[in-house]
Design a protein around this nucleic acid. Structure first.
Length: 443
RNA sequence: GCCGUCGUAGCUUAGCGGUAGAGCGCUCGGCUGUUAACCGAGUGGUCGCCGGUUCGAAUCCGGUCGACGGCGCCA
């Protein structure tokens, strides 16, 4: 550049912070928008930290360089350098007066970048690989990254071991119709399934490590077409020995609080950019309200929901129950009949199980499902028999009860749903880079 | 699986029985401070597919495929 070499590389975020005013910097990124007239051009440059307006004048560049920048199409990559200066006319308050550019890869005018942001859902999903560079997607993915980091930070602090469980599983553990079958190529084991939960494996590992967690994908073949379902979702699951339903609820709410607090401290600008009201999010405080199943049914009914005792909560009821809330709520002690076999019946009232669901506010749905597990072999077999489940494939699971099983509890949290709630997203797919849904596996 | 809505240029869409229109994009030209820049010209569509009704179908009817949204179920 004018024989002086390139200036030191900086990020756009650093420039927008204002401390570089008056300095000569090099920026690298993608052309976000471009406006040009015969003598002056305003290329907006984007990198992972932000977007900044640059000013290119014909008299500050060689004719070749000016023409190159003036004709460059959006999403071309380039590096440029120039003087940083404050200017009230620039969006963001700072701009770069360009004195040198190098086009890295120019977009072909025969195939201009197809996205601007006002396209329809289908088109944006078909072009997901390109839409991911939009400011809204990158903001959501930055929040998502911090949620994952907060989870690891929380469990490290709590002394939990991270453990990995298999994704290929042999048995249908709950609701066989929602399992994905996979060809497995062995004569004796031709078919296996993709995991829906690590839980049964966790119950084995917890007898050795006592406090464990995992962050892994789970798969559900439900034909769900809703704003909160994916066929492949990220599951944060934890299991703890010597812990009951009350104890695990405290872990759940502290985890959720930690995640929210962490996000408020690390990605507040991104949340604001996504339109999230931070004041509402700041209202998340411990402890979360707890309702026994019957109380929750009555509360929902008093708000006008149609539900009768003994029924499970439908989404329509959940929406009424949580629509006017700003914090998550627990529902505990569900009727035994409507919960899976591994939940432990309450010794004080065996018609209910020691379990809890955590519902996110504003209709984001159930974000955590949890409970205390059956401890004795007799209890477990009785529950399986009552639900018509063949114990044969669960022999190893039953074994766990034969060798010193201790009281234990665990939970599964839908990370994508948590991110969707924190971001205030309209749809869970808006916070997942390549969402997998029943009718969408491309790109 | 069920219910709903929708498939017209690269995108967003108008037209809803009589030879297919616009905005954006892209190309060319103009413009020395633009903010979804502007001005002028150009480019671009066998109206998802199959069949039926009709003198005539993007338009009406039947089917089919696809997409999106919602429900049941779940995290």
């Amino acid at each position: 550049m004018r024989g002086l070499g390139w200036a030191p590389v900086h990020t756009i975020g650093e420039v927008l912070r204002g401390t570089l005013a008056g300095q000569h910097v090099q920026l690298r990124g993608w052309l976000h928008r471009n406006r040009a007239s015969g003598q002056i051009a305003f290329p907006q440059l984007r990198d992972s930290t932000g977007v900044i307006q640059c000013v290119a004048r014909r008299d500050s560049l060689s004719p070749e360089q000016f023409d190159a920048i003036a004709k460059l199409l959006p999403e071309s990559s380039l590096r440029l350098q120039g003087m940083v200066r404050a200017d009230p006319r620039a969006p963001g308050g700072f701009e770069v007066a360009v004195d040198g550019i190098e086009v890295v890869a120019a977009v072909d005018p025969a195939r201009p970048f197809p996205l601007r942001g006002d396209e329809g859902d289908e088109f944006l999903l078909d072009n997901r690989h390109l839409w991911l560079r939009s400011t809204s997607m990158t903001a959501a993915l930055k929040v998502r990254a911090q949620v994952f980091r907060a989870i690891d930070d929380f469990f490290a602090q709590e002394g939990y071991y991270e453990v990995q469980s298999p994704s290929f599983v042999s048995g249908a553990c709950e609701g066989g119709s929602t399992l994905f079958k996979v060809e497995y190529g062995d004569e004796e084991q031709k078919e296996v399934y993709l995991t829906q939960s690590w839980q049964l494996y966790a119950e084995a590992m917890v007898q050795g490590l006592e406090h464990i967690y995992t962050v892994a994908p789970s798969f559900r073949a439900e034909k769900s077409r809703t704003r909160r379902h994916l066929t492949e979702f990220w599951h944060c699951e934890a299991e703890a020995a010597w812990m009951g339903n009350d104890g695990i609820m405290e872990v759940e709410e502290r985890l959720i609080f930690h995640i929210v607090d962490w996000c408020l401290r690390t990605v507040a600008p991104e949340l604001t950019a996504l339109g999230r009201d931070l004041g509402t999010l700041r209202q998340v405080r411990l402890p979360f309200p707890r309702y026994r199943y019957e109380e929750a049914v009555e509360l929902a009914a008093s708000k006008g929901a149609e539900i009768s005792m003994g029924e499970d909560f439908t989404y329509a009821v959940e929406k009424i129950l949580t629509g006017d809330l700003t914090v998550p709520i627990f529902i505990t002690h569900f009727p035994t009949a409507i919960k899976p076999f591994y939940h432990r019946p309450d010794p004080a009232d065996p018609t209910h199980v020691l379990c809890n669901d955590l519902l996110a506010p504003s209709g984001y749905g159930e974000i955590v499902g949890a409970g205390e597990r059956c401890v004795t072999l007799e209890e477990l077999l009785a529950r399986m028999q009552k639900q018509g489940i063949d114990p044969a494939p669960y022999e190893w699971y039953l074994d766990l009860r034969r060798y010193g099983a201790v009281p234990h509890a665990g939970f599964g949290m839908g990370i994508d749903r948590v991110v969707a709630w924190i971001c205030g997203a309209d749809h869970i797919k808006n916070v997942v880079p390549f969402p997998r849904m029943m009718r969408r596996v491309y790109p």
